[in-house]
Design a binder for these strands. Structure first.
Length: 444
DNA sequence: GTTGGCAGCC
């Protein structure tokens, strides 16, 4: 039986689906038609994180263990078997693309608690890797947080790790995304639903308490002014998925639950800072996935780093547990990256499956609703979210020891005592970097 | 009234 398998040029590119033949193999000619110059396929073994090659015989690529499965397969190009100095024979397109990768971009952190500071962001996000910048955006006059901020990592793997999971910061779930991209992690984990036909008297608390019956609600967003819809985010994507398509009665009105995804994929073509995303790339244009990357101005280095690792209340479960909760593996990260570059969130559907939440009732904290202004948010209940992933994860098992991307993951979490909290305390005010250190691109 | 929240400067 023939099927489609997902193939990407490399781990930073969006996969496309290629049809296999009746016997289950993929013709090398089919592959080469989409990826000129490609001579084979590989994929990451989810158990070991190591790349595996795909058998090639008589011009046919054979599925591993007889099944293409849900892996993302990556092209192999001849260069990898060549000595230096022979690049001239290579497909120039493929070569250019592979050079343009591994760039970090600023990441926007949405849904921050009003009280979160740069220090909080530093403490939380440093678990993924070295940070070059953290920022909480504030009202210039009042200093009040606007409820979002930015972070930038020093290396791309840290960025990928960060984008692949969701984040609880100071008691609230936050989204981290490439700026100005609607196709972010929220779709990858697909735990957010759209609530249509809301009435004006439905408060965030109403929606939360209603939908909590089906599973833990971690966020409610109601646009202001009133627009007759809302978003509800569950801890468990399966809960979100199960509710999609249903009608529910809330406060006497019938609301409709559907997928919190843009209806049209055309839209995201206009979403990219005015650069025509697919076309008009200059000869040395950036890799299409890096929409938020505004050139490479020197980043202001932030002192310290380390800080309070051991006592980080933002991450009660620790990274090891986080990994278990999401069953992350490099293929997912790659798929996550692919998904966020092009809005193709299909690859990740169903792959990320946090365990059923065991805890309830921590949601006394205010809903994240910019329009409701400051001061109305009761203190967060704090540590109640600790149990992510305590539930049933069946797939790869083997514990967390393997870590993620060849093991860097677990090490990053260890903050511990040593921390050398040098940079802490100097990050107050409007940003963690000085004015002079701001990147120069974008507005010059 | 059924698809959000995005930076100080351009």
């Amino acid at each position: 039986m023939n099927q489609y398998l997902q193939v990407a040029e490399d781990e930073n590119e969006e996969p496309i689906e290629l049809p296999s033949e009746e016997d289950g193999t993929l013709l090398l000619s089919t592959l080469a038609a989409q990826f000129p110059g490609s001579c084979g396929l590989k994929y990451r073994n989810p158990d070991s994180g190591v790349l595996r090659g795909i058998r090639l015989a008589d011009g046919r690529l054979h599925p591993p263990d007889g099944m293409w499965g849900n892996h993302i397969f990556y092209c192999v190009f001849p260069k990898e078997n060549k000595r230096k100095g022979e690049e001239g024979l290579e497909n120039p397109m493929a070569k250019t693309k592979r050079v343009e990768k591994h760039k970090c971009s600023d990441l926007i952190v949405l849904g921050l608690p009003w009280k979160s500071t740069e220090d909080d962001l530093q403490a939380y996000f440093s678990q993924f890797g070295e940070l070059l910048m953290v920022q909480v955006k504030r009202d210039l006059k009042t200093g009040q947080s606007k409820g979002f901020g930015f972070v930038r990592f020093a290396d791309y793997e840290a960025q990928l790790k960060c984008l692949a999971v969701r984040h609880m910061i100071d008691g609230r779930w936050c989204d981290v995304r490439i700026p100005n991209s609607r196709e972010g992690t929220q779709h990858i984990v697909n735990r957010k639903v759209f609530i249509g036909r809301c009435t004006e008297d439905m408060t965030a608390d109403d929606l939360r308490s209603y939908f909590n019956k089906f599973g833990e609600v971690v966020d409610v967003f109601i646009p202001k002014p009133f627009r007759a819809f809302a978003f509800v985010t569950f801890a468990d994507p399966e809960v979100a998925h199960a509710l999609c398509g249903e009608d529910h009665i809330i406060k006497g009105a019938s609301v409709h639950v559907s997928n919190a995804a843009p209806k049209s994929f055309d839209k995201h073509n206009q979403d990219n800072r005015g650069k025509g995303p697919m076309f008009n790339q200059g000869p040395q244009g950036f890799s299409p996935g890096q929409g938020g990357n505004w050139g490479a101005g020197q980043q202001g280095k932030q002192g310290g780093g380390g800080g309070q690792g051991g006592q980080n209340m933002n991450n009660p479960m620790g990274l090891g547990n986080l990994g278990a909760a999401f069953q992350l593996n490099p293929a997912m990260v790659a798929a996550a990256q692919a998904a966020l570059t092009q809005g193709g969130w299909g690859p990740l559907l169903g792959m990320m499956n946090p365990g059923q939440q065991q805890q309830q009732g921590t949601s006394a904290s205010g809903e994240h609703n910019q329009a409701t202004a400051a001061g109305n948010n009761p203190p967060s209940a704090g540590s109640g979210f600790g149990n992510i992933g305590a539930g049933n994860n069946s797939s790869t098992s083997g514990g967390n020891s393997g870590g993620f991307l060849s093991g860097g993951w677990n090490n990053a979490a260890q903050g511990g005592a040593g921390g050398g909290g040098d940079g802490a305390g100097s990050n107050q005010g409007t940003g963690a970097w000085g004015h002079d250190a701001k990147p120069q691109a974008g507005w010059n």
